[in-house]
Design a protein around this nucleic acid. Sequence first.
RNA 1: GGUGAGGUGGCUGAGUGGUUGAAAGCACCGGUCUUGAAAACCGGCGUACGUUUGUAGCGUACCUAGGGUUCAAAUCCCUACCUCACCGCCA
Length: 430
Amino acid sequence: MLDPKHFRNDISITADKLKLRGFDLDTASFTALEEKRKALQVATQELQNERNSRSKNIGKAKAQGQDIAPLLAEVSDLGEKLDAAKAELDDVLNQVNAITSLVPNIPDESVPPGKDESENVEILKWGTIPTFDFEPKDHVDLGDNSAKGLDFESAAKLSGSRFVVMRGQIARMHRALAQFMLDTHTSNHGYTELYVPYLVNESALYGTGQLPKFGEDLFHTKPATESGLGMSLIPTAEVPVTNLASGEIFDEEQLPVKLTAHTPCFRSEAGSSGRDTRGLIRQHQFDKVELVQLVKPEDSMQALEELTGHAEAILQALELPYRKVILCSGDIGFSAAKTYDLEVWLPAQDTYREISSCSNMQDFQARRMQARFKRKSEKKPELLHTLNGSGLAVGRTLVAILENYQQADGSIAVPAVLQNYMGGCTVISA
RNA sequence: GGUGAGGUGGCUGAGUGGUUGAAAGCACCGGUCUUGAAAACCGGCGUACGUUUGUAGCGUACCUAGGGUUCAAAUCCCUACCUCACCGCCA
């Protein structure tokens, strides 16, 4: 949610900025609606004022033992007028809210303008792309080799497409990766580890911006006893972790808050039925280690650099070649003001694929969830800034290791930093 | 799942349907006193929105949330959520 002032005071500037990311704000009709809201609100409050003062007078008269019947007669139609005014105001407020809750964040000035992902800008490349003296296989074939380490057929039997069963050393490496990531972020980067619910309510999803616009990307549970969506499976740990701040007022000294959690993520992948159907890249269920920071507004851009660096540190420790991309204005997510994507090299696809997305949401989510902090020198609480990033997507990291560490015989070398997590195992044999 | 009791400001905790945004205490902030600190005393101490040049004043809303009754609701009624206690069940 944007600051309402953006809509009231400088709506045309706001509309211009939103156009950069491909969002059309109908300023004329919104301004008209806003005028209406203002007039109705004033009128309603005046009626309430009148009712309040008259009611007080009735109370006083009654206390003095006077006859209140004539006073009651005077206010008889006030109630109806008030109800009508309230209903009208409610209606307009709902309309305003319906619009503003669908307006995305404004891109930061440092974000390059652009229409779609083709105009994202590469910031850096890290690592050396491996060369093979044989035809590199993709992770599906490699996983199939190692005693059905990646078993998509079995998963399809259990659940359908876009699920996987992992076995043996592959499953263990998957677990090792998550452990390694968590340990690195807690020990080296100053994050506090969390365990959080995987089912969340509607208000949490609203807080981080998944609702009301992106409900169809989620899996919803609907117990027989409930109406509506019921609880929803988290599409990312960002939802439960960031919403911990909802309704809170932090002391200035408590910031920055740095949190990390390893959770499964569930996405319906509606609208991407034809994309990445092969393999582990796009699943309905995948694991991710998430990084979240709550910071003061003046610190958030620097925090984004650091948080992205924390995700990069994992790729570097695993010696996986990657590149860092800044998303252009047309490609950033709904709630984000600025986003870096980290893309890992996948030899079989001969290209870089997204493995992490790190964003500064500024006060966009904080406003939705009323997450605030108080400066020592100030009386009024201020909205804090929220950031999050994947550090990293575990399934895709596994894909990257299988493909980059593969050997001619189809075996997989185990990256040095993972060996201790795998009982000293140095190679997963074919 | 059953039964019972509750949800009031940062915390504790009052509150017969009527000048209650809400007593009191604690915490916190400012001041007096003191060489300094403590104690004591004095004063202040919620959020959002509207009006406005205004961090002034005034108005409105908010006592878990949403409905209802009433001229008037923290106070009465209904529903949801949550908490606590006991019972049942359970990894």
